[in-house]
Design a protein around this nucleic acid. Structure first.
Lengths: 235, 235
DNA sequence: AAGTGGTCTAGACCACATC
DNA sequence: ATGTGGTCTAGACCACTTC
């Protein structure tokens, strides 16, 4: 035990919120009142309150006070990495092919390039000990001096393929999850007998000026197509 | 302009990180050094650094210093509300039916209740000006004094239906996205001619003791089955 | 022993909201 | 005029790491 004062106050206030004693819209005591009650300084109280703010429980208005927030129930955290599927099973990756081609119009549009712009296409099969899991395809515009190392191609997730340049923080990502029919190529790789609807996770990567720098599609077969997300409430 | 000092320092450091001048693993200058350089106090420096910490750029180790973090490229933010589909189109809700029944074994298992436990089942159709979007079904265990108001049934999202008791913060959510075939009932509502694979968003709600308090499934027809998520990089 | 971050105090001045 | 939160100072002591 022997928590720091700010931790103690934080826990007490958070508890009141979680138990419903403090409801959305309610105003908290002022910083000075809390400082007196807990026999501490204003800074220590502010530390507790800023933590509650960071975790989405309260906001403050200059000259007015602190208020309990109306929680946003639509927000979820989604963890997605095509090479690390929820860490439930070991996932392996096998390179099926790499080539530089002119992709079709839909891909060109998504990458915001002209149709004669060369694109590196990387095909991979993702599988576990029990068999194939997903068919994975990446499109990376081929330009400037951006080398793609062989090892990266087989064992890297999309962000790590393209984020070599500049900073790994200067990257924006977008995910789109939808249904698409499999094609003969995918059927063969995933051991499907006929064309089936598959769950597709499409990953778009942009640099800091919003220029597309990579596009990935992962087609999950049968029972493997389950994407999960969680509320970000602290443990 | 005239930003506060801590804001100024925060921006400068964040810029260095985004431009790649500071890379993952690099150590920052010490609090005292930064305080001297910016002719300010240690507290002001600490404010900047704690903001960078909160936004996932750096960590600190007592006795050692501050270090740039290896960013987690698998983290996404997913916004889901069955009644507010990305705010692109106005979405309406029509109540198809409400009844209290004993649901099948799969539902009972997910709600962790016995098979003779009554469950309130709510069926809704979600549609826009252009036609039906999704078929929505909720399962809420019927027990204790938890009244469900009529208006809530037609116009509320699942978290708002069940979070009346205690605090709206004391709720854990889980989302699972997968493919399922439509049944005749769904076909009729969504104007489908035959059984089709649909994108399903399954929402599980738990109270603070991890007891299930609600289950929702939303079946999206055709082109409407697109779920998006974004990296949490600021603005 | 010296330097680092973690916690904390006792003040100060400001812009803002309320009355 | 008073109270509120927002910013900031100049100290202090502690536990920790490194040398």
């Amino acid at each position: 035990m022997n928590l720091p004062i700010y931790r103690h106050l934080f826990n007490q206030l958070k508890d009141k919120i979680l138990r419903g004693e403090l409801k959305p819209g309610d105003m908290l005591q002022s910083e000075n009142e809390l400082a007196q009650q807990y026999s501490t300084s204003r800074l220590t109280v502010r530390k507790s309150l800023s933590m509650l703010d960071n975790e989405g429980f309260i906001t403050s208005f200059p000259g007015k006070g602190y208020y309990i927030i109306e929680p946003d129930h639509s927000k979820y955290i989604l963890l997605f990495n095509e090479l690390n599927s929820g860490s439930k099973n070991n996932l392996y990756s096998k390179l099926l092919g790499v080539n530089a081609t002119n992709p079709d119009a839909a891909i060109c549009q998504k990458l915001q390039i002209s149709c004669n712009h060369k694109v590196v296409v990387i095909l991979r099969l993702l599988y576990s000990n029990e068999g194939p899991i997903a068919y994975d395809i990446k499109y990376i515009p081929y330009d400037r001096g951006r080398p793609i190392v062989e090892k990266a191609i087989e064992y890297a997730a999309l962000p790590d393929m393209v984020a070599k340049k500049s900073s790994p923080f200067a990257i924006k990502k977008e995910l789109c999850i939808y249904i698409d029919k499999s094609n003969p190529e995918i059927n063969k790789s995933l051991c499907l007998h006929e064309s089936e609807p598959l769950l597709v996770v499409e990953q778009s990567l942009y640099d800091y000026e919003n220029k597309p720098i990579g596009l990935g599609k992962t087609y999950y077969g049968g029972e493997h197509g389950k994407i999960r997300a969680y509320s970000n409430m602290r443990e």
